[in-house]
Design a protein around this nucleic acid. Structure first.
Lengths: 217, 217
DNA sequence: GCCGAACCGTAACGTACGGTACGGCCCTTT
DNA sequence: AAAGGGCCGTACCGTACGTTACGGTTCGGC
């Protein structure tokens, strides 16, 4: 085992130049999928392969750094806790839903999920774990406080926030992600995404909204 | 371009011996993921590589034949149309849900979906298309008549059967498939699957069940 | 009992690609 | 201005694997 320098491991974030390289990897990943080669990365990023190996250790290290770099860019916006009426709660949920749909239907996300799925099929489960942690689970951590605030405010009713979140997740994502990963061209427009987000939110509220007594017609 | 014999293309189904080979590929795919090599297949199936290439053309042909072979084995049972009361409808839906969860959480399905996702990332979209066609879309084709029968019987209410199906799909699958593909070990027990199927069915009925008037306590 | 076809096992070929080595350029430091 | 480190470009190495080729074996048909 050679004593490689391998900066980037356990260090503070990537330098500006390294970020450029990682962005190049992202672009190549979208274009080439897992056929991406180190040579192609070096050419696209205008750097030498030697530098790639010095910075990232090996191909997996480069991929891992890329996934983390992208994950660090996707930042789910925090929710303002003030408005606790039904309208603002619904608005928050709808916002989450449309943001999430936009993320999972982006070319970058699809490409990244693909490589993570590939690696999960090998021994290394790292990439899949990172993608899950910064994607699905990060979303859950963000959304749960919102759900619980809604519950405490008497707007929502559920036994378990985790289960409620998974229901919401299912209503939002449905078959979109698996279809995209399997190559189905879904071409979601902004309008469709917003419509789906609204539908999912209404369905979720129908399932978990507090009963306010029957509204007579 | 050599004139290979390439049986299996556009022919009637595989012979018994070929089925044995394809089953060996399935087992290897579960064990090795996409690291599966032609040499390993030949060894495991006790056949020569020459035969593999003669029968299946090339590596992709072998994988395609394998996906189709597995797809031909997963046969969604038809639904008995007779019982049109709410209980039997719910039972049908629940049956679909648990069957589907069992399929997507099986090792074979995960492995197959992984290779299909990989290939969808390349140019070839064949495998992904096959998996979608025989999986997600086949399920939709089976379930829609059930939903429409429920609608005609006044048990369900929805505008569009496709949209209703996707809602059901989302309620059943939630985040299970993507988590499994990304390497999350979910280890669903039969009891959990049945419970999830029942929950999804109840939620779907709550959203799309016909209003029978408020049941006074 | 012989013939040919199908098939097994394995060796060999070609290539693509991960990883390494090296010469030259630029830029900072003194 | 000289020195040295960091990095680019590229040539190179080793290997894994898809694909092909070939000798030996089994088996059904006559």
């Amino acid at each position: 085992m050679l004593q490689t320098t391998n900066e980037m491991m356990e260090g503070e974030g990537p330098t500006a130049r390294q970020k450029d390289v990682l962005d190049a990897v992202l672009r190549l990943l979208v274009e080439e999928g897992d056929r991406l080669t180190m040579t192609a990365v070096a050419r696209r990023a205008s750097c030498s392969k030697e530098t790639l190996y010095k910075w990232f250790g090996d191909r997996d290290g480069l991929l891992t750094a890329t996934v983390q770099w992208q994950a660090s860019k996707v930042r789910v916006p925090p929710v303002d806790r003030q408005g606790l009426d039904l309208a603002s709660l619904a608005a928050s949920l709808e916002r989450f839903a449309s943001d999430w749909l936009r993320v999972i239907s982006s070319d970058t996300s699809i490409a990244l999920n693909r490589v993570a799925v590939v690696h999960a099929g090998s021994d290394k489960r790292d990439l899949g774990a990172i993608v899950l942690e910064r994607g699905r689970f990060a979303l859950g951590r963000r959304l749960k406080p919102v759900l619980e605030a809604g519950s405490e405010a008497g707007l929502l009713e559920f036994d378990d926030a985790e289960t409620a979140f998974r229901t919401f997740f299912g209503l939002v994502a449905r078959d979109v992600q698996i279809r995209l990963l399997l190559g189905d061209r879904l071409e979601l427009t902004d309008a469709e995404i917003d419509g789906d987000a609204a539908r999912a939110t209404q369905q979720f509220l129908a399932l978990h909204g507090a009963k306010t007594g029957p509204a007579a017609p």
